[in-house]
Nucleic acid binder design. Structure first.
Length: 580
RNA sequence: GCGCCCGUAGCUCAGUCGGAUAGAGUAGUGGAUUCCUAAUCCAUUGGUCGCAGGUUCGAAUCCUGCCGGGCGCACCA
């Protein structure tokens, strides 16, 4: 449609008098109008030509309109304002969208051909040391919707969760579980101040004890002679305890560690799955080391001559690649840093053939971007293959009251609690309603309220209303002939129907735009507008009327609207209920 | 100090590849239901688009500076 109108404009410009060098002039473009009074599409070409042609914009517009070839798509044109050329589509081109929607079905709005681009979307990637909290929920909802959006736009998308299952935190987790397990017999034993203290630790300890009680160390052997513990003890106490546990338990400590990690990961997976968020792969950080990928990456850096040994410490010269300081990759004690794992992981993503590495990270991680990109570039990968989307923080409200969060306050709100309270649909939609780079105020009360200000119900209600109409069709002894309905769309001669059809027509470009901007919230806004258009029509006109042409046409429009509502909600991971 | 994000109606936010009188919900006021779900719709009040310059026929949108808020600047993971 757009292309065809531009084509008409091109031909009109060719025919324009007094134009010496067409190529030097700006090419005509058209855009959607905001106001129906301005037609369906508008071009600003006359204003852009005013200066080079030294004529008034309105005169140029008049000349262009006069030179415009006849076309069945266009009902009429108009010159308005400072020199806009407005195009009013003919009824036939307006109503054609309904057929396109129904023919494409659930594919409507999706790219017609694959882009051939392989995209890896990595998101959540929360440390497996405890249950997900409300902040992770936003990452989950955003990442999952973003993956859906890119798939709709034709990309070949893989969703991945990077599991930080290496390093001291997993040992601290195991030590925490161990102490809880010992506390079953001796409640007075102290939990390390650096340990994890949530109730879930106790649950894991109970489960682990069932089959592993015989591997429990003697508490005296474990605790006696450890350094002083306290809030300011630093790592000395916990590290000593871990070392002690490893000595006393041998391989059983490793079993405990794996048991704990698996228990938490299972819980996370279950939590996410309950919200409709699934991953193609959970990628283990520990596997990077065991499979030699970190050494591979370090070797690439060495081969490329971008690392220096400075007094036994291996430094990556990140400043050569735009980072603000150089980064340690191997410490003087021989241990590789987290950063080394990270670039090895990203190199692996590239080697698995992904064109675009799309990382969804917390806003507090923006410092990483430059160094990882530097790492990729230093390893010979295009720096622009890494794209990072930062997700800002979530504040919880209940009514007007801010809900305190954080493990220390004891007011910890888990994702599971939030889902239990507001339901998955509200959770998914509220999480992505705002742009990801905007702080989010999540109001629990609003999310469950059944009112106009709650977009979840507003949108779902529109779908349920349509479903309700079709349900009652037979009961009223009426029929719907979809083919006849398509033919009769011209009888829908009113502004509400026209607005609805124009909105349906915009869905594909909305999906494209949202995917390009990595902004699922654009889809939310669209669906809210579409729901408004439907509710307006619904209020003004009955669908189940006696007149056959009107009934067929209106029901056909309703069917198309329901389809687009479903398609949009599917991208967002929100259900489209038949009744409410 | 440096870097990233944000500043639009009383409140929560859309709108930013520059476009025609700046939009929605909410809050306030007044209406619509013998009729497919009123979880709906209609009308109306409300804004120096943080401030100051600049570019442009045209700036909430682009550029520069400033002010205000959030976050980050590890040989931690």
């Amino acid at each position: 449609m757009k292309d065809q109108i531009v084509e008409l404009l091109e031909r009109a410009l060719d025919a324009l008098e007094g134009v010496e060098d067409r190529a030097a002039l700006p090419a005509p473009e058209i855009e959607r109008t905001r106001d129906a009074a301005h037609g369906d599409y508008a071009s600003n070409i006359a204003m852009q030509l005013a200066r080079p042609l030294r004529q008034s914009p309105r005169d140029i517009a008049a000349a262009i309109v006069a030179a415009l070839p006849e076309n069945a798509l266009i009902e009429r044109t108009d010159i308005a304002g400072p020199g806009f050329i407005n195009f009013f589509l003919s009824d036939a081109s307006t109503t054609a969208v309904v057929g396109r929607v129904l023919d494409a079905g659930e594919r409507y709005g999706h790219a017609e051909a694959p882009t051939g681009r392989k995209v890896l979307v990595e998101f959540v990637s929360a440390n497996p040391t405890g249950p997900l909290h409300v902040g992770h929920g936003r990452h989950a909802a955003y990442g999952a919707s973003l993956a859906n959006l890119l798939r709709a736009a034709g990309d070949d998308v893989t969703a991945e969760y990077y599991v930080n299952d290496a390093g001291r935190q997993m040992e601290i987790l195991a030590a925490s579980v161990l102490v809880r397990a010992l506390q079953v017999d001796n409640g007075a034993l102290p939990l390390p101040s650096a340990g994890y203290r949530g109730d879930y630790i106790r649950d894991i300890a109970t489960d682990w004890r069932k089959d592993n009680a015989d591997t429990l160390p003697d508490p005296g052997d474990l605790f006696d002679g450890l350094p002083e513990d306290g809030p300011d003890a630093g790592d000395a106490y916990i590290d000593a305890m871990i070392a002690r546990a490893e000595t006393l338990m041998g391989g059983a400590f490793l079993v405990l560690k794996q048991f704990s990690t698996t228990a938490i990961l299972d819980d996370i997976r279950d939590d996410l799955g309950g919200m409709g968020v699934t991953f193609d792969r959970f990628y283990s950080e520990a596997s990077l080391a065991t499979e030699g990928r970190i050494d591979d990456a370090l070797n690439v850096l060495r081969d490329n001559g971008v690392v220096d040994d400075r007094d036994g410490t291996l430094w990556f010269r990140a400043t050569d690649f735009g980072d603000e300081k150089d980064r340690v990759v191997v410490r003087d004690n021989g241990k590789k840093t987290y950063f080394a794992s990270d670039i090895a992981y990203h190199l692996d993503k590239r080697r698995r053939g992904f064109d675009l590495l799309l990382d969804v990270l917390g806003a507090d991680h923006h410092g990483y971007v430059a160094r990882i990109r530097a790492g990729l570039e230093a390893m010979g990968e295009p720096p622009e293959s890494l794209e990072v989307r930062l997700v800002q923080f979530v504040s919880l409200f209940r009514g007007g009251e801010k809900v305190a969060m954080g493990t220390r306050s004891g007011n910890f709100v888990s994702l599971r609690e939030l889902r239990d309270e507001v339901g998955n649909d509200a959770a998914r939609l509220f999480y992505i309603m705002r742009s990801n780079d905007q702080h989010l105020d999540f109001d629990l009360e609003l999310a469950t309220s059944t009112s106009n200000e709650n977009p979840v119900y507003y949108i779902q209600y529109a779908h349920a209303r349509i479903a309700g109409v079709f349900k009652q069709l037979a009961g009223q002894g009426l029929t719907w002939d979809p083919a006849a309905g398509r033919g009769a769309l011209g009888t829908l001669d009113n502004e509400h129907a026209a607005a609805l059809m124009t909105r349906l027509d915009r869905f594909p470009e909305t999906v494209r735009n949202a995917a390009e901007r990595r902004a699922p919230n654009v889809i939310v806004n669209y669906l809210r507008d579409l729901a408004t258009d439907l509710h307006r029509f619904y209020n003004e006109y009955k669908f189940l009327v006696d007149d056959t042409d009107s009934r067929n046409a209106r029901l056909t429009l309703a069917a198309a609207t329901g389809q687009v509502l479903r398609n949009g909600l599917a991208i967002l991971g929100v259900s489209a209920p038949e009744h409410m």
